[in-house]
Design a protein around this nucleic acid. Structure first.
Lengths: 324, 324
DNA sequence: CGGGTAAATACTCATTTTGAGCATAAATCG
DNA sequence: CGATTTATGCTCAAAATGAGTATTTACCCG
């Protein structure tokens, strides 16, 4: 049920799904167990080969997901197509698939769902389990210091000065150096950098401590797919009202903000956030209020679907960071 | 040399390239002749099957392009993976590949190049040849009236009122109805709509006049790939400095603006455009000036590559429209 | 060789859009 | 009741935008 078998004489085409949901404080990803993986890398994404019976790629994907997790998908978009040889471990060399051997492709999809009822073997996991350093809601994660040190060491170890400079520029660019700050969209670039620097188990890193730093690995190249999905979602949220795919039909502005913060991994200025949402016309009030939020009861809102027909590119332009 | 042969028992994986360049007033796409196509649809994109000898998808693509056109590629990014069954003509039904038959996938890439020396059989064509209604630099194209009429007729012809409303909402959304204006990024959505409405030869439309309205068709689903590329490029130009991949090493701000206008299909306010470029720190002056622009000589500028390391998301946020 | 034309470039100005706070309201908890 | 917590309303300065006006410096033309 995964793309591990890569020996057939024709290109193997696999389908994989990054299925995301969000509770108030945790963005979630749906995982399934993957057999035959190295120790500690048994978590993976729902996936399966493209079969002749599948009418389209997307329909094939939905079928696999439903079969493996029982989850039916609403919003789905294609993410990226990964070729296996891109993602060979440095120490593996040409390896199993061999030079001139067969290709294996994975077409990865992003899906956003509301309900999070795990079924069969599947389980919802916080995605910060896989990218702990991406969550800055409680401030800059301490692990970033250690990561920075290791990355710097990697840069220093470059064969020539030219390459050294390239590496440290790249570190600055992706992890935010002096001057330029943290860009929450660069999830994939950060993961790729860690991979190239050999700081993730997928790239051969050993030791338990590495998981504390760079997060839990996944089967095959699934963590890379997840990173791709987070980059896409964190970017898209700004110019398309996709968050609402993750929200219940009625919600408070506070809850909406919590979810956006959970996705982006940063905190937002509350008053400005609600001003933005309001003036964008993204939501409308319902008559109901809820007292479940702790303090003063909040008005329940609903997504205004009409906005899709009105504004050119409605999204949540994440009003500044910091501040509760 | 194209993905026409779709009978093998394993998924056929093809690679296709949308290679774009820009002269001052024309954005260009590199085309090659494709054999065995219906009358008038012999133009296509460089493409070829993924072969075992290709180390990665992207390298395979570069090899095909070089072989077919002699063009070597610089900037390349993956665009989208198309499954063939998505794109079956309504009148064809299950057709050749057959229910339960084999899939054919095409992984399409976008490439941006500077020089435009056509080689072998290839030819550079203005992309507005394929999407004439996308060029608004000389004002709203007159053809849009006729297109609008035909689309409205299609909406009217919907089987039920529900569907009719959906269709006309969609027309308004993509082609710009009252209220919401034209969004230059929706190239793909517009093409898809024309396809579904049967207003392009690829969807079975007959008659010479249709080309005057909706543009020249291409082989297979290549026009769809081109539309995908334009959507991507028109969007990306706003938040990444990709235009410079199309510019010579030194250029004037006027030339830069002409290219951006050519890509986006709209005119920009000159003074604001240069203010934007300047304050974004995207370019720096060279010592040279050129008198080749007509009036007062202009300073030659060059792209500041360092900006990639500084600003989070530098791009050209297209300062307003209208106005020379 | 002086006037007309075409760009390029420099500034101005009113509006909007941001980023940051302050202040008040309405619940719950001890 | 007073402290705490979240929701909501409003203000204000700084920065970004949209739309012009004005000036400079070529070339072209007779």
């Amino acid at each position: 049920m995964n793309e591990a078998e890569r020996t057939a004489p024709a290109p193997q085409v696999g389908l994989a799904a990054v299925i995301l949901a969000a509770t108030l404080d945790d963005p979630r990803v749906l995982t399934v167990p993957v057999a035959g993986q190295p120790e500690g890398r048994g978590e993976g994404l729902p996936a399966g080969p493209l079969e002749p019976a599948h009418p389209t790629l997307e329909r094939g994907l939905r079928a696999w997901v439903e079969r493996q997790t029982g989850q039916s998908l609403g919003y789905v978009e294609q993410l990226y197509t990964f070729g296996d040889r891109n993602r060979r471990r440095p120490d593996e060399g040409p390896g199993a698939a061999g030079e001139g051997g067969q290709h294996a492709l994975s077409v990865a999809y992003l899906a956003l769902v509301r309900e999070a009822r795990p079924a069969a073997d599947s389980a919802w996991q916080s995605w910060y389990r896989y990218f702990p350093y991406e969550d800055r809601r409680a401030g800059r994660p301490a692990a970033l210091d250690a990561i920075g040190d290791r990355l710097d060491a990697w840069a220093e170890a470059a064969p020539d000065p030219e390459e050294r400079r390239r590496r440290s520029d790249r570190i600055g660019l992706t992890f935010g150096a002096a001057g330029s700050g943290w860009n929450e969209e660069r999830v994939l670039e950060r993961y790729e950098l860690l991979f190239e620097a050999g700081l993730v188990p997928e790239a051969g890193a050993e030791g338990e401590d590495i998981r504390g730093l760079t997060g839990q690995p996944m089967a095959l190249d699934h963590r890379r797919m997840l990173a791709t999905a987070l980059s896409r979602l964190r970017g898209k949220i700004k110019y398309r009202p996709v968050v609402f795919e993750l929200m219940p039909p009625a919600f408070t502005l506070g809850q909406l903000q919590r979810v956006v913060e959970a996705l982006s991994g940063t905190l937002l200025h509350k008053q400005n956030f609600r001003r933005l949402v309001a003036q964008q016309g993204l939501v409308e009030e319902t008559e109901a209020v809820t007292a479940e939020t702790g303090g003063r009861p909040a008005r329940l809102m609903r997504f205004r679907r009409e906005v899709l027909l009105e504004r050119p590119a409605p999204g949540l332009r994440l009003p500044s960071s910091r501040m509760g």
